[in-house]
Amino acid sequence: MKKTLLVMIALVAAKVSIAQYGANDKRVQLGFTASPLISVLNPQESGVKRNSVKVGFNFGLMADLRLNESGTYSLSSGFQALFAGSTLKYDAGVGLSDFKAVPSEYNMKLTYVEIPLALKLKTKPVNDMTWFGQFGTFFDFPVAGRANVISAGQTFNKVNILPEMNRINIGMLIGAGVEYPLGETLRGMAGITYQNGFVDVTRNKKWNDGRINMNSFALRLGIYF
């Protein structure tokens, strides 16, 4: 709860600071996103397999910096919270030291602070609707990690795995969607985004599990103001 509260405080602080900048510069378009997603932890080596994906959530601030007068090119970023994870089954000999004597299952629930950075290309408005595509990267910083572990017939709930997670995740971001007017000043946004993580989610010295990548598919919903 404390870490979630810190994330919320950081989001509010970022909103205030960015809004102060955007109020005096019409090149900056600010918004808020609340996006459901499906996250997938992908084991890259033998000894680990995925049992299920997880329905997650992403919410926070969006900021588009216009790069030309018409607004067809912009730099898209933001400051968001990401809730993701998956369920992984580990063979004996891999996984956390407390459980790796026998095959164990880890239901992982991960929380990140996310900073996307992408080039956003827009069409000119057609019937007040603007289509866009974007390509770039993202930076994820873990702030919480818990796992419900089933090992040797016993269940261990809310095991803290944050110390055993890598401190950053970086990857590729691609997406597409549409923006449309909701009034004189508000614009809605809807689209899809795919993110492919390049960095191992878990620390190999702790897990001995090779590389575990995190990917996600999101239904991007938001409002620009």
Results as ranks from 00 to 15, higher is better:
38 I>T: 12
38 I>K: 00
39 S>G: 09
40 V>D: 12
40 V>L: 13
41 L>V: 07
41 L>K: 10
42 N>D: 14
43 P>G: 09
43 P>R: 10
44 Q>P: 02
45 E>W: 02
45 E>R: 09
47 G>I: 10
48 V>I: 12
50 R>Q: 15
50 R>V: 02
52 S>T: 13
52 S>R: 14
52 S>I: 04
52 S>V: 06
53 V>S: 15
54 K>H: 14
56 G>T: 03
58 N>L: 13
58 N>P: 10
59 F>T: 13
60 G>D: 05
61 L>A: 12
62 M>I: 11
62 M>D: 11
63 A>N: 10
64 D>S: 07
66 R>D: 13
67 L>S: 05
67 L>R: 11
67 L>N: 12
68 N>I: 02
69 E>Q: 14
70 S>P: 03
70 S>A: 12
72 T>H: 04
72 T>V: 10
74 S>N: 08
75 L>K: 10
75 L>P: 03
77 S>I: 06
78 G>T: 09
80 Q>R: 15
81 A>N: 07
81 A>P: 00
82 L>A: 10
83 F>G: 00
83 F>P: 05
84 A>Q: 11
84 A>G: 09
86 S>A: 15
86 S>R: 02
88 L>K: 12
91 D>C: 03
92 A>L: 07
92 A>T: 06
92 A>I: 01
93 G>L: 00
94 V>M: 06
95 G>F: 01
96 L>V: 03
96 L>S: 01
97 S>H: 08
101 A>Q: 10
101 A>F: 01
103 P>M: 03
105 E>P: 08
106 Y>F: 08
106 Y>H: 13
106 Y>P: 08
107 N>Y: 00
108 M>G: 07
108 M>N: 10
109 K>L: 10
109 K>T: 13
110 L>R: 05
111 T>H: 05
113 V>Q: 09
114 E>Q: 15
115 I>W: 04
115 I>C: 05
115 I>Q: 02
116 P>T: 04
117 L>T: 08
119 L>M: 14
120 K>Y: 07
121 L>E: 00
125 P>F: 06
128 D>Y: 10
128 D>Q: 15
131 W>M: 14
132 F>S: 04
134 Q>K: 15
134 Q>P: 06
134 Q>M: 14
136 G>R: 11
137 T>L: 03
138 F>Q: 02
138 F>W: 02
139 F>E: 07
140 D>I: 01
141 F>N: 13
141 F>A: 10
142 P>L: 04
142 P>N: 04
143 V>M: 04
143 V>H: 08
143 V>C: 08
144 A>Y: 06
144 A>M: 08
145 G>K: 02
